[in-house]
Write a protein that binds this DNA or RNA. Structure first.
Lengths: 165, 165
DNA sequence: GGAAAATGATAGGACATCCGACCAACCGCG
DNA sequence: CGCGGTTGGTCGGATGTCCTATCATTTTCC
């Protein structure tokens, strides 16, 4: 992936320094752009690792979610709620997973508005192999030890929590 | 934005706990998915704040980059390199910024392959106002103080640096 | 009981991103 | 000096995300 453009630092982050006198909050801007860049790099790496399995990270997350559901199936709305994505994104992902034979769509007998998704045997196999591939690369976070991961997680967690109240 | 689906925790992050025996690295998966969620929330908020200005966060970053260039102009390849995005993404963003009258495209007299982009007066004005709007919301990071932002930044920085070995 | 409101899923449109392919221009080396 | 490799930018296609709108079904409440 040598052709992928990368830099050891992010010029945008230097905005904070350069704009020190002009804007009020350089540290916030620097962290915000850093989060964007890291997500960009991680997602690219995940999708590259998952490509041999014919799925993307977005679809991988759906498979993970389904494998955790006690009943073995989830309504599309529940999936969207848990992944915090728009309902149309869920429909899109499930469409592709069904086409690939990894997920099956069934109607909910109780509430006929609902559509339930569940893993197929093939879906479970792919999920297992894909998870091994991702853990083999430490989810792109090999540079952090467990303590650092916990610290980073707690810091980010407060950002998400702040979105509620 | 009450209709935007959110949860105080991310079920996917619990994957680490649930898969404690099955996968080797729950902490990495949990942090990785947390980074994805936070980026998702921040980007949505940024785009919402920037909508009145007719730009997205991707285009805002281009404007910021141009305003920092000493010469006042940058080649598209340089922009892509610094933002770590594909050349086609830069072409796309510049196209829209030119259409909006915020950026002007000029040919490089020395290397005729190059296309240079520079801010228009209108572009500078929009950049200034948009930056104020984003700093007014603390770039979505009001829940963290300066020290926490610095800690989070340093942790994420190592993830990016690790990509270079 | 039935009309109004809320919920679940999907369709169509807009954007941003990537990839592969392509063309133009530069440049290195025989 | 020129041929081949590299670099810069763009085009078409695929994916994922959001938004608005729509339809079907369920729930609320008068």
């Amino acid at each position: 992936m040598a052709e992928r453009p990368r830099l050891p630092f992010d010029p945008i982050e230097r905005a904070g320094e350069l704009w020190g006198e002009r804007i009020g909050d350089p540290s916030a801007m620097r962290l915000a752009t850093s989060i964007m860049r890291v997500q960009q790099l991680l997602l690219a790496e995940f999708d590259r690792v998952l490509r041999p399995f014919g799925i993307t990270f977005a679809r991988y997350e759906v498979l993970v979610l389904l494998s955790f559901s006690h009943a073995g199936e989830l309504s599309l709305s529940k999936i969207g709620e848990r992944l915090m994505v728009h309902p149309t994104s869920v429909t899109n992902a499930i469409d592709r997973l069904v086409d690939a034979g990894l997920v099956s769509r069934t109607a909910d007998g109780v509430d006929r508005r609902r559509v339930l998704a569940s893993l197929t045997a093939e879906g479970e196999r792919v999920l297992k192999d894909a998870t091994k591939a991702l853990t083999d690369i430490d989810f792109g976070l090999a540079s952090l030890d467990d303590a650092d991961r916990e610290r980073a997680y707690q810091l980010l967690r407060s950002v998400r929590s702040a979105d509620f109240e």
